[in-house]
């Protein structure tokens, strides 16, 4: 059974939607409770900057990745069957 890589990208986007929703809720809480002060603005700014940096790093790291390739969930070599598919990791030599 093979899963295309873009499924994980969709899951990531779903997670991003949840993240943005909760972030908006947090900012709403700060504003609605008259807690918009230097301290809360500073923390909000730091979190925003870290979020932007993380998203930027993610985009940069995933540049050129072919998301149409598939991941094999069950491979024949797992049960000793004949398969030319490489193992998911390189064996460690002691």
């Amino acid at each position: 059974m093979a899963i295309p890589l873009y499924i994980f990208l969709f899951l990531y986007f779903l997670f991003l939607a949840v993240f943005i929703t909760f972030s908006i809720i947090h900012v709403y809480h700060i504003v609605a409770t008259a807690s918009l002060t230097f301290a809360s603005l500073t923390v909000t700014f730091i979190i925003s900057v870290l979020t932007v940096v993380t998203l930027f790093w993610t985009i940069q790291a995933l540049q050129g990745v072919d998301f149409t390739q598939t991941i094999s969930v069950f491979g024949g070599q797992w049960f000793g069957g004949g398969s030319n598919e490489p193992l998911p990791f390189a064996p460690v030599e002691f």
Partner: peptide, 29 residues
């Protein structure tokens, strides 16, 4: 690719968790 996506989700979750902790601390008034 999976590693990058997982690490990105992890970091965003940590930011959200920290922001929630700050909300619970700072909104006690």
């Amino acid at each position: 690719t999976l590693g990058v996506l997982f690490v990105s989700m992890y970091y965003l979750s940590v930011y959200l968790f920290f922001f929630t902790q700050f909300i619970e601390y700072y909104l006690d008034i």
